[in-house]
Amino acid sequence: MVGIISYGAYIPRFRIKTEEIARVWGANGAEIAAGLGVREKSVPDFDEDTITMSVEAARSALARRPIDTSEIGAIYVGSESHPYAVKPSAAAVGEAIGATPVMTAADFEFACKAGTAGIQTGMGLVKSGMVKYAVAIGADTAQGAPGDALEYTASAGGAAIIIGNDDPIAEINHTCSFTTDTPDFWRREGQEYPRHGGRFSGDPAYFKHIQGAAKLMLEQMGTKPSDYDYAIFHQPNAKFPQKVSAMLGFTREQIKPGLAVPRLGNTYSGAVPVGISATLDVAKPGDRIFVTSYGSGAGSDAFDITVTDVIDSDAFDRSAGPTVEELLANPVYLDYALYAKHKGKILMQ
């Protein structure tokens, strides 16, 4: 059975409160901030990007479950904010964690579900026997134009999931996807900030695809929402995942452990991997986890996961890496000017 061997997350310590962003942009900004349910969001430091955050997340995963890195046969980094247009983030991550040179590496891009697409690809390679371990990472330093609704949520962070079949801490029972050509969010080559379809991003995009993949998973597995202990849905804000979970029949208690967005913001490709990490931080053997990601453009990946006894065994040490709760603690708050400087909206000479 293919499953999760280990996991690790990384979140920058810097934060900005959405009320501070609203202070700069006036009454309309305050209305936007109130409707999103996000109190604050993470901000990358000057020397942090998708590669550095991916390395930190992968190192955390390896600290929890030391494996021979020469046996990592694949590394995939999903992101909307790769530092280079032409040069793979995955190769740099592999070098940093000692997995090179015998591996396949690639950068994935499917808006906010690029990280879960990497998990699916890693599952296929492991299940076929082509590789022993695959590392799938979702990480972003998300972009949002000044004053746009995205600026109130676009944050930084990510998580790494190591896939294998050697005593996994959680078995991935099944995965399926639901994809259409729905242009709700896009950024053309050379453009600094993405554009979005506003309210169009809700019903015909996010909700349609999350429900499409989730209902397909329930049908294929012959399960119902009450069969799961936890549920994780893509979290672009706090409102959407709570609404879609209720539409599908899941409870607030099921989604609460993985709902980091009120204090983290939207890490784009990192959102669901971070949610998985936060849930595995508290999960017990036998717990069942329902996961559905979403990526604009548009598509969703769903997963049915069962936690195994290995998570509490001597083979795995959860305390060796920081939990998502620990990463969210002790923030350093920035005002809007320092935030703009950190994000490169104000260029240093």
Rank of each mutant, 00 (worst) to 15 (best):
L259R: 01
L259F: 11
L259I: 13
A260I: 11
V261Y: 03
V261I: 08
V261N: 04
V261D: 03
R263W: 12
R263M: 13
R263K: 13
L264M: 07
L264T: 08
L264G: 06
L264K: 04
G265T: 07
G265S: 09
N266C: 12
N266I: 07
Y268F: 15
S269Y: 13
S269L: 14
G270H: 01
A271E: 04
V272G: 01
V272I: 11
P273R: 10
V274T: 14
V274Y: 12
G275V: 06
G275K: 06
G275F: 03
G275W: 08
G275C: 09
I276Q: 09
I276S: 12
S277C: 15
S277I: 06
S277Y: 07
A278R: 00
A278C: 09
T279G: 15
T279C: 15
T279Y: 14
T279Q: 15
T279S: 15
L280K: 10
D281F: 11
D281A: 13
V282Q: 14
A283M: 12
A283Y: 00
A283E: 04
K284E: 10
P285K: 08
P285V: 10
P285I: 07
G286N: 11
G286T: 10
R288C: 08
R288M: 07
I289T: 05
F290S: 01
V291P: 01
T292Y: 07
T292H: 02
S293T: 10
S293E: 09
S293K: 03
Y294Q: 06
G295F: 07
G295T: 09
S296Q: 10
G297W: 01
G297N: 04
G297K: 05
G297I: 02
G297C: 04
A298G: 15
A298K: 12
G299I: 03
G299R: 05
G299T: 06
G299P: 04
S300Q: 05
S300D: 05
S300P: 05
D301K: 04
D301Q: 11
A302D: 08
A302Y: 04
F303V: 10
F303P: 02
F303I: 13
D304K: 05
I305T: 12
I305P: 09
T306Y: 03
T306C: 01
T306P: 01
V307I: 11
V307R: 06
T308W: 03
T308G: 08
D309S: 13
V310D: 08
V310K: 02
V310C: 03
V310M: 07
I311H: 00
I311K: 00
D312G: 01
D312R: 00
S313R: 02
S313T: 02
D314V: 01
D314S: 09
D314A: 14
A315L: 04
A315H: 01
F316M: 03
F316G: 01
F316V: 01
D317V: 00
D317C: 00
R318T: 07
R318Y: 07
R318S: 13
R318L: 10
R318P: 03
R318Q: 10
R318V: 09
S319L: 02
S319D: 08
S319K: 10
S319M: 02
A320H: 11
A320V: 13
A320Q: 12
P322K: 14
P322Q: 14
P322L: 12
T323S: 14
T323Y: 03
V324S: 02
V324L: 12
V324F: 02
V324K: 00
E325V: 14
E325Q: 15
E325I: 12
